[in-house]
């Protein structure tokens, strides 16, 4: 339900340098400040910034004249949203069913052990982030790991150290043809 009667928490919209230099205002405008587009706005903000910073959520709430809890509710309900910045390099282990029956759980355990973090966390130096995804739909290649968005197929636990080394070496990945098309 729309919380039309709930009191709106007053947040002064101060044009801090942080807000001015961020794409948040532009994105809200692109969606015509429409409450129905809240999820789309947050998706665009995260795509532009890598995560949803608190000031961005406050900015959206104030702009749409809705309580910040409503924005936060959306940001925590849907899996895609991140409230913390991702790692410089993001390792995404697919734990879909097809990958699971081919041993994805062991692969994930190895990533956790090597990086010393749990899924959903980022290393202290912010170099690596680790997360899981429910299915990337490339089940023929399972178990699948995405390293900075690049698909690695048929990953086994023993391949994890090599993959991490390679990730470190090639910071600059060339974009996958299909991804650039989707982005365009």
């Amino acid at each position: 339900m729309r919380a039309a009667t709930a009191p709106v928490r007053e947040i002064a919209l101060v044009d801090t340098p942080e807000i001015l230099s961020s794409p948040v205002g532009r994105i809200i405008e692109e969606h015509h400040n429409d409450r129905n587009d809240l999820i789309a706005m947050l998706l665009d903000i995260q795509d532009a910034m890598g995560f949803l910073p608190r000031f961005a959520m406050e900015h959206v709430a104030t702009s749409l004249e809705i309580p910040i809890t409503e924005v936060y509710g959306i940001a925590t309900f849907f899996k895609y949203f991140r409230l913390k910045p991702p790692g410089e390099h993001q390792c995404t282990v697919c734990t879909g069913t097809a990958c699971h029956v081919r041993g994805a759980a062991r692969v994930l355990r190895e990533f956790e052990r090597h990086l010393g973090i749990r899924s959903g966390e980022v290393t202290d130096d912010r170099e690596y982030g680790l997360e899981t995804v429910n299915c990337v739909g490339a089940c023929a290649l399972g178990p699948i790991v995405l390293l900075d968005g690049d698909y690695q197929g048929q990953v086994t636990a023993s391949k994890v150290p090599t993959l991490l080394r390679r990730l470190k070496r090639s910071a600059e990945k060339k974009p996958v043809a299909a991804r650039s098309e989707a982005a365009a």
Partner: peptide, 15 residues
Amino acid sequence: TGTGCVAGGAGDVVE
């Protein structure tokens, strides 16, 4: 150029 083939390297094949 479905996702499965792209993951398998279809982009390079096209090039």
